[in-house]
Structure formats: C-alpha cells, structure tokens
Design a protein around this nucleic acid. Structure first.
Length: 590
DNA sequence: CAGGTTAGCACC
DNA sequence: AAACGGTGCTAACCTG
C-alpha cells in the first residue's frame, strides 16, 4: 500500500492506494467504519464510455480526511462492489458519468437512490457558470471556490505535469499512466476527499426554498442517465450515403468558389475580399470591426443571382451538415450502431437542459435529412409529444394575465390578438409575442421584423396594453432583481439576475419554469415505467421509440402523463406518431 | 502546440 | 427610455 498525506484547507488528509490483496483488508475496515456515507469516484481510460476499448481502472472511496484507491483492473472488482452496495449514501461529482461506468464495467445497478451529487447541489446554490460571475460547477471550480484554491490548481497540475513528463496528450494519460504512478494515485484519491468536503459544505448552502429540488433533480438525472445509456439507433447505411453525398456537394461547390479566387469558403476574410472584388458592398461590421459576411448577406446576393455567393452558401452548408452532424454520428456510434447523447439535465442558469453528442436541440428543423439518420428500434416507431405553446402558456400562468389565459381557454389566436392591438400582420404579432418573452427591445424587434423602430414601439405598446399583467410581472421581477440580485421561481429555484440586465428576469422566469414543467413530465413518465422508451428531451418536447402496434395508444398515454396544470392554466400536449425514422416526423416517408 | 476567443449557424 | 433569453458545434484566428 502506498500512503500520501497532504494538507487541504489547513487540515491533513491521507490517501491510501491499495496495491496488494493484503491491503484490501484495511480498505474493508475503512468501509465498515464509514457505512453512513462516502464519496466515490472512478478513473477510466477516457471519456469515450461506449467505445470498445473503454475500461474502468480504479474506484475510489473517501470521506473528508481519508481516501482509498482500488485498482479494480488489477485486484478484481469485488471489494469495490461490496463497498458500493454496503454504504448508505454515496457522494459523487456528476454521478451520471460514474454510475454509467459502474453499471457498465462492474454490473452494479440501482445506486441512484443513494446518490448525493455535488454538481446538483452547486447548481441549486448558484446556477451561473464561471464566465457569468458564478462559481462554475466542475470539481476543479468548486474546489477552488469552496475548499482550497491551491489544491484546485495542484490537482489540475498533477495530470497536466504527468502528460508533459510522458509526452502524451492529457486525454490519453488516463489510459496509459501506470497505476503505481504516485501522481496518478494522489489525483485519483484526492477527488473523493474534495467531493466529500463539498457535500458537507454545499448541503447547508442550498436555499431553503430550493430544498425540494434536491430530490427531484436527482430523480431527473436518473431519467436522463437512462436515456443516455439507451442511446438512439443510427441508420448506418443511410447516414454513410448521406455523408458521401454531402462530400460531393461540398467538393463541387468549393472548387467553383476556388474558380472565383476563394481558396477557403470558411474564411470570412477571403469571402469578403472576393465579394468586394466583384463589386459588392459589405455594409455591416462584426463587434470586432471586421466585415460581416453572414447568411443574411450571402442569401441576398444569391437572390441577386451572384454565382460565387451561391457556391459559398452551398459549400458551407454541405460541410457544416457533414462535419457537425452526419460524420459525428458515424464516429461516435457504439458497436451496436447506437449513438449516446450526453444529456445535462441541469445546464443553463435557468436550469434548462442541454444535449451534446447528438446536438438534438440544434438540428435543422426545416429539413428531415439529418433527423432521418435516427431510427426507432426494430418493430417500433417514433413518437413525439410536445407541449402546446409552452412558454406562452407559462407566461399566462405566471403573470395571471386574464386576456392571455382567456385566449388559451377559448383557443383564440393569441398572435392575432397581439397583431390587432396595433394593426399589424399576424406574423409580426407572433414575433413580438416571442420577442417580448426574450426581452427584446424596439430596435431589435424592428430589425427582425423588417419594420421601423417606431412601428416596433407601437406593437410593443399594443402588447403591453393587451396583456397588462404581463407587463406588471416583468416590472415586479425587475424590481426584485435589482433589490435582491436574484428572483425565485414557483418551483423553488433561485435565479441570479445581472444588475446591468434586469430586463432578462422575465425570460429567466419563463424559461426556467418551462424547463421545470418538462422535467415534471419526464419524471411522471419515469414513474409510469416509460423511461426505457424515451430517447431525448428537447426543450418542450419528448421523443420516444414505441412498439409499432401500440403506437397510437402509447403516444396518447405519454401525452396524458406529460400535460399538467400550472397556476390554474392547462399546459396541454400534442402527441404525434411517426414512422420508423425520426425524419418521418419532419416529412420524410420512412 | 494547446487552449481560449470570435464569428457564424443551428435550434427553442 | 431602452434593453434579444438560452443552448452546442466548427473553423478560423489569436495568445501564452
């Protein structure tokens, strides 16, 4: 056994790295003395959890003073499994990852009921990232802020130094470094001590009104973790062919652009040079003062019949689609042809979820081509259930606005009501309904809608006159934000609002409450045993793969479980049954 | 050369 | 009086 001592925030800690079978007895004694709770962490060969050569290397346990590192790949998995099963509460930093690892590599299931996740606690205390003036939510950031800045730097430095010493990229070090390396053992053990200390420190800092969220966020994390693990079946044949087709389009268009003297269509500077040489004016500038060449400008030029602009637009889109989506799907799919999204159930300041891997929230909505890559399982079809006008209904509920609530009750056309208030087209009324929730000002609305600033002001005034309680809510929230620096949502969330942008408070309120309504729906689906069929949550929508012969019934059931009443306002759902591919819900015939 | 920033483009 | 909220990804560009 190797033993290390360090000082963390003024007190000494010990890290024990098990090296022989005899050492295990000492670990067992430690476990028996700490049955109440322990922090746990794993070291693996990398983060590519679903790749074939992914391996679990060590499992670590620790309390606030002492950590133990178990080399499961060397000495077997039994001591680690026994400890996982025996300890009452397990503290993790980002449990989702480690629990997937433990289930996949050790076959241990059912741990979620024991989990305390420090990342969840940290987000409930301050949901802001580091760049937004918050603490951030990584172990390193939390350690720096709440425990010991030197240790945070030191731990980070350990693996970096190791990478430099062995001349391997940091990501690869985890797979190649020898278990007996002292820096590695120290690094592995220290994380559990830090997580244990964080748990102690953070628990009392969760605002009283947010306490109920501790439970529900752990539950939601479990639901999302199951969706990640299940993954989404990829149509490999279609996806491969699509990649090839996009490559051809890209090559052709790039060589056309080269013919006009532009070697790299992704270089804004080069494209700007050629455009100016062709006699086009580039009126707009980016925040840094560079010539702004974006889609708006380029499509205008395409409409004017400029062949170069056409090549650039086509090449850029083909490349973007191929690299960002299609090729990504193919490289990250697992051995069974499934892609596993990474779902962060608690991401934004507003707690909005985010999805990476399959960036499901940002796939083109106007075209089925990309979504066509994904399939319902064998014998199943795709089902999508979304909330009807979720954010506007939430706004109606939060504000208590009678006109808005009545419009929803009677199925009146809310966008037309806004439009009529100032005598503009429905399209503009719709835009302003959304823009108001986003906190847009007159200038922005004018630009977006292609109307004058004066007209935009009139439409906003019309909105505020139509829904007076919405305006009142916004003002009330801004007052609170200025006074307290944060607002509270009906779900118990505390949302910091920057002093220089109090107008954002309304959006935070609406966005966060909407997220919590979707989250509630997901948890009800979980309780009903539907989680295995779920594929993705996408803002106000849940995507599922269900048996084809019971699809209509299943979709209806999901819709019923998801819909809810919020402050007296019914938030209904719209179930839709598709075919085999996700694209079928967007117009593809398969 | 790694890592961060900017610009642009998707979505709700 | 005016105020565009949030996310991810890539390529190019910049910096230590």
């Amino acid at each position: 056994m190797k033993t290390y001592t360090r000082v963390v925030n003024g007190s000494q800690v010990t890290i024990n790295a098990v090296e022989t079978h005899e050492d295990i007895q000492d670990f067992v004694a430690f476990g028996k003395a700490n049955l109440g709770w322990l922090a746990c962490d794993t070291e693996t060969t990398g983060l590519d959890i679903y790749s074939d050569n992914f391996r679990l290397r060590t499992v670590q346990f620790g309390n606030e003073r002492e950590a133990w590192v178990l080399p499961v790949e060397r000495l077997g998995r039994l001591p680690a499994i026994a400890a996982l099963l025996n300890v009452n509460k397990l503290v993790f930093q980002n449990a989702s990852y480690d629990l997937q690892v433990l289930e996949q590599c050790l076959g241990v299931k059912g741990l979620w009921s024991k989990v305390v996740d420090t990342k969840i606690l940290a987000h409930l205390i301050d949901p802001r990232g580091k760049t937004e003036g918050g603490t951030g939510h990584s172990l390193e950031d939390l350690t720096r802020h709440y425990i010991d800045a030197d240790i945070a730097d030191g731990v980070k430095g350990l693996m970096k130094a190791l990478a430099a010493d062995t001349k391997t990229p940091v990501a690869q070090v985890f797979a190649t470094v020898d278990y007996s390396n002292p820096d590695y053992q120290l690094y592995a053990g220290m994380d559990t001590i830090l997580a244990a200390r964080l748990a102690r420190k953070l628990m009392p800092l969760v605002p009283a009104e947010s306490k109920p969220l501790i439970r529900s966020e752990h539950k939601l994390a479990e639901v999302c973790a199951v969706m990640e693990r299940t993954g989404f079946l990829l149509d490999v044949d279609y996806t491969t062919k699509l990649s090839g087709r996009l490559s051809e389009i890209q090559d052709k268009s790039e060589s056309e652009a080269a013919g006009f003297g532009c070697e790299n269509v992704n270089s804004t500077e080069q494209v700007a040079d050629v455009l100016e040489a062709r006699g086009h004016k580039i009126p707009e500038r980016t925040p840094c003062g560079k010539r702004k060449v974006d889609k708006v400008l380029l499509t205008r030029l395409v409409e004017q019949g400029d062949e170069f602009a056409k090549s650039v637009v086509t090449a850029k889109q083909a490349r973007k689609w191929r690299t960002t989506w299609v090729d990504g799907f193919l490289t990250q799919m697992d051995g069974a042809g499934r892609c596993h999204p990474a779902i962060n159930p608690l991401r934004a300041r507003t707690a909005r979820m985010s999805i990476t891997g399959i960036p499901a929230q940002t796939l083109p909505a106007g075209d089925w081509m990309i979504r066509r890559c994904f399939l319902a399982d064998q014998g199943q079809v795709m089902v999508s259930v979304d909330y009807q006008a979720q954010e506007l209904r939430v706004l109606a509920a939060l504000s208590g606005d009678q006109t808005m609530q009545k419009a929803f009750r009677n199925n009146d056309d809310l966008h037309q009501i806004t439009a009529d208030a100032s005598g503009v087209d429905r399209k503009i009324g719709k835009m302003v309904n959304f823009a108001y929730v986003y906190g847009s000002g007159p200038r922005n609305i004018a630009e977006q809608a292609g109307i004058g600033v004066d007209t935009a002001k009139k439409v906003i005034q019309g909105f505020e006159k139509s829904y007076p309680q919405v305006k009142r809510l916004s003002q009330e929230l801004q007052k609170q934000a200025r006074r307290d620096g944060f607002i509270n949502t009906p779900f118990g969330r505390r949302l910091p609002v920057d002093q220089e942008r109090p107008y954002a408070a309304l959006n935070y309120m609406v966005q966060s409450s909407s997220r919590d309504i979707t989250a509630g729906g997901l948890m009800r689906l979980h309780d009903a045993g539907i989680t295995p069929y779920l594929r993705l949550p996408i803002h106000d929508e849940v995507l599922a793969s269900v048996p084809a012969d019971k699809a209509e019934k299943a979709a209806k059931k999901i819709g019923e479980l998801m819909c809810t009443r919020f402050k007296g306002v019914f938030i209904g759902t719209d179930p839709e049954v598709g075919g085999r591919s996700w694209g079928s819900l967007y117009g593809s015939d398969y």
